[in-house]
Design a protein around this nucleic acid. Structure first.
Lengths: 186, 186, 186, 186
DNA sequence: CATGAATGAGATTTCATTCAT
DNA sequence: GATGAATGAAATCTCATTCAT
């Protein structure tokens, strides 16, 4: 499974730098240190490589957040933890987080693969509904809240990427961001 | 200048649907109803077509907002107007607004052309600084505020696109979105 | 006839620099300061431009040599004068002389146009035959002698082009070259 | 390395017949019996094909002359052998010799690749200097002598190409040519 | 599984030439 | 004649994919 990882790693780097169509599979193979044809042993199609990479990254993020979110006794704590953890992960994995964005604004996002995201959306929906019921969140359409939280997250991430801040400053800003989000939605 | 418009129109539609690299210049030409070579009379390079299209669209949006923003006596009114007008324009020109997003998450955005955006950013910076001084905005880094406003705008737009709402509902939601934004930043 | 000259001039310069096929007619037109289509009023075809340019240059050289060769009383003087005058002209018109060479090693030289050169060859043949009869030239095939004289001329020209010599040095070398040629052929 | 040879062979034939720019890479590929893209596996660029072909041919000629020139005890024998061998090779490989000429009068000859020729020129320079010192050659600039020898060689070759002579006649003429050259330069 | 040469459809770009004004 | 926008065939080059080894 070592070669697969090497391919993923190279693909991630190159996709972020040159875009999906702008990156040749032969280049990915070369950078991954494998032969041209080897790549197609693991991914019969370039599309499947893109989709597979997205799935892997999304799962990694989900897993990370799930593990670090602690036992979600309180819904408020839970949401706070979700938000903060996501951004901490993003800071440690900027390419991957960038890739997720890139994927979403690309034509790939409307391919038959959504299964990955659907599950998570359902999960988030449940949380938010509970939050609304407990009056911790405004009574707004759930999808709308999800949109706002997501875009807020990306906005914060982009700002962090564009500035050279120390770890402490970064964490402080992420905390502040959460306060702002909370204020907006409660 | 009719052919240039036809090329822009076709390019916009196809870029949004298939991405930059996923769209062949020959297809753009065909859809625009011009010969293959004609496209290259107007844009010596595919890259220049993309860049030119972005510049044109950005200018159109800026112009529109400038005209419809009224006499910006009060800063609060001014910001409200900017936000609402941008989203109204986005609703009327969803492809163009989508294109702007697409452009920003693509490798094109780091090409030597930024001049278009630089001017606007300078303008926004001035407004926000004034807002902070007048205690209408929290004392946060100006760039940070810009990031948040932008991502909020895109989030609202994406939500609106994904739902089939009536004009009235759309406008109501945009108003609400502004209230949320204001609450977050004041 | 001013535009025709402008076209010739630009074409000459560009052909020498980039080759025949490497030079676009549109570029020739631009450098000549005429519109794209104008070129095709004077030369219905790019090929006819090349051929026409060659004919014009060849005629210019012939004319020049004819005028400056003096009254060819003595055959020996005559040959000397021909050789020297050709090279003097070449020094004053390096691009044109280079073009002649270029033309000869190109596929154009085997196009139906030879008429220009045929006449001159006939003329040279007569002289050389006389030279042989008068024992001033070795008894070698006339064509062979012509080949040797031509290549000698080009060789001297190329050497002169590659060195930065003063007028005096150039002329001295040309004189020497003639002595060498004479020695070889007598 | 069989395909590379096939490409070289086809390219040589077509370049000589139609010129560099006049020959489409697709035609070369077809005549070589390989796929269009295969050509670009071997030569990433048409220019590199031309340059590579020149380098290969030049090396072949050099090698041939080196091998057949015998142990160059006497400088006079050596020069004679060089001249004759070059022309014998040219007679056996007319296309290749023509190609060399074609290359030299083309814009390619001023591309960054001269390294191939530089070495040989250095070698020839040494020989000629020795010849001058031993009074076997006139005291003329070395570069000048090289120019004259080269152009003489090409002149003889061109004459041989234009006539249908028997092997014996050809060889006799080459011998004569050398006598002429010697007479001119001693 | 791994390799990498080979493929050929397709992409971008060029350019001689035409033609309405 | 002069113009230059328009044309579209053709050229160079790319790249996802295959397959024999």
């Amino acid at each position: 499974m070592d070669k697969k990882s090497a391919i993923f790693e190279a693909a991630l780097r190159l996709f972020v730098e040159h875009g999906f169509h702008g990156t040749a599979t032969s280049l990915i193979a070369k950078e991954a240190g494998v032969a041209n044809g080897t790549l197609f042993n693991y991914f019969p199609t370039k599309d499947e490589l893109v989709l597979g990479l997205y799935a892997a990254i999304k799962q990694e993020l989900t897993e990370y957040v799930r593990i670090h979110t602690g036992n979600a006794e309180d819904i408020r704590d839970f949401m706070r933890s979700q938000f903060l953890t996501s951004l901490f992960w993003a800071l440690d994995n900027p390419l991957k987080f960038h890739f997720i964005q890139q994927f979403h604004t690309s034509p790939y996002s409307s391919m038959p693969n959504a299964s990955v995201d659907a599950e998570q959306t359902a999960y988030h929906t449940k949380i938010i509904r509970a939050g609304i019921k407990q009056k911790m969140l405004r009574n707004l359409p759930v999808d709308f809240i999800i949109s706002l939280v997501n875009s807020h997250t990306f906005g914060v991430f982009q700002y962090l990427q564009s500035k050279k801040l120390s770890k402490a400053e970064q964490h402080k800003l992420i905390e502040t961001s959460y306060e702002l989000l909370k204020k907006m939605l409660e």
